[in-house]
Design a protein around this nucleic acid. Structure first.
Lengths: 225, 225
DNA sequence: CACAATTTGGAGCGTATGCTCCAAAAACCA
DNA sequence: TGGTTTTTGGAGCATACGCTCCAAATTGTG
């Protein structure tokens, strides 16, 4: 065991040294791209060196190991997804409309990044034996997203837009569908297929809405004996 | 280039030779297990040799390469899933009841194999650059499953159990959810979480049912102005 | 400028990995 | 039984891979 510095938390410099020639966040963005396309296991350190334009010593000096670089990349990826998709859903005061907007934005995100799916999900899918940090991260992300979905449904109930029973179930349904969309993209679904799926979930959300003359609830009522 | 025989289609023997000491299908079952747990990329040929109890020459003589072994394993895996889950759905004459049974069986399957998810989906998630046979296979499987789901919904419409609009959308919703369930398992969802998800989709299917006094459709009607 | 501190380039180390090669083994057939 | 064909065990090859090491470069400081 050699006494190695913890690369993730650099101590304050006592005296000066040669400064870094690259921007840490830009490099992480590059790492996200590579891992996202090739997966963790199929990405070699030489792939990373080439894509990031860095020598191995720079990478290892800054991030410590390939696995830690992945973790840092995952953190950055998650924040970008969260900022663009989850936070708007969380901060919205709308109910079902917020859900519709969320799925519209998600659909755009997924189509834009087709066929790469979700980096977080992809990395958890590679080897079940290694308990990755990605898995912990994905669990927390799932929890957070489900909570946001459920709260939007509750807001719609409070506004009288939607019926009030099994709110949690509907959140679970949506959560499962979000995961499914990502994996459909990764598994090679066409843009048309993905967009059709997004329309499907939005239609279902529409059907949860009460008092909408064009909605299925009317048909529903009319067909009842 | 050496003239190599095509291992996947052994020609009929002209004269005898030493017979194989193992059962091809049992070996494939073993390969499914290994690939399912570790993923393709993290499975080494030595892992396979150990798990299958075979020498490398036996594996390569029989299957040709690691990739071809995966393809053969995928084929076998797909048939098992199909027999247990998809065929019952396709051959059933029920409508929504067939869907409920399908998701019950799927839930059991997924919980039984937690946290391995779906081998087909997992293998498509590893490296987006290589156009795997698994990806083609997964696309066809998705198509087939969607068709089966849609037909069940249509049967329920024909039987007067369900309203008749946007049948395709509902099939897409269910299809996306199936994919989501698998990836939730792989991503470390607990048994409780998975079962909750299955209950959620079954509740939604229930809500598609007309003329059921305990169903949400009644609430739906009652709450309408 | 000398010195300490840090990063950079890049050679290269030890092991892992997919696969091959070949002699020995084990079957059928004449 | 001798001949032919195929499989089996396992040594081993060529490359890939994660990572290390170190001299040179580049900064601030005294």
């Amino acid at each position: 065991m050699r006494p190695t510095r913890n690369p993730s938390r650099p101590h304050r410099r006592r005296t000066a040294g040669r400064p870094r020639s690259f921007d840490r966040d830009k490099v992480l963005d590059g790492a996200v791209e590579v891992f996202w396309e090739r997966g963790y296991r199929s990405t070699t350190t030489r792939d990373l060196e080439a894509a990031l334009g860095l020598a191995p010593s720079s990478i290892y000096n800054t991030f410590g190991s390939k696995r830690e670089l992945l973790n840092a990349a995952l953190e950055r990826y998650e924040r970008q997804v969260t900022d663009r998709l989850v936070t708007p859903l969380e901060t919205s005061t709308d109910g079902l409309a917020a859900l519709t907007e969320f799925f519209t934005a998600l659909g755009r995100w997924i189509v834009d990044h087709r066929p790469r799916g979700c980096l977080l999900i992809n990395t958890t899918s590679e080897d079940v034996r290694v308990k990755t940090v990605g898995m912990e991260r994905a669990s927390q992300y799932r929890l957070r997203l489900r909570r946001a979905l459920q709260r939007a449904i509750k807001r719609s109930v409070a506004a009288g837009d939607s019926y009030g029973d099994h709110v949690g179930s509907r959140a679970d349904l949506l959560l499962g569908f979000v995961l499914g969309l990502n994996v459909a993209s990764r598994a090679g679904a066409s843009t048309a297929e993905l967009e059709r799926m997004v329309r499907a979930v939005r239609k279902q959300i529409d059907d949860w809405q009460l008092d909408k003359s064009t909605s299925r609830s009317f048909t529903h009522f009319r067909k009842s004996p």
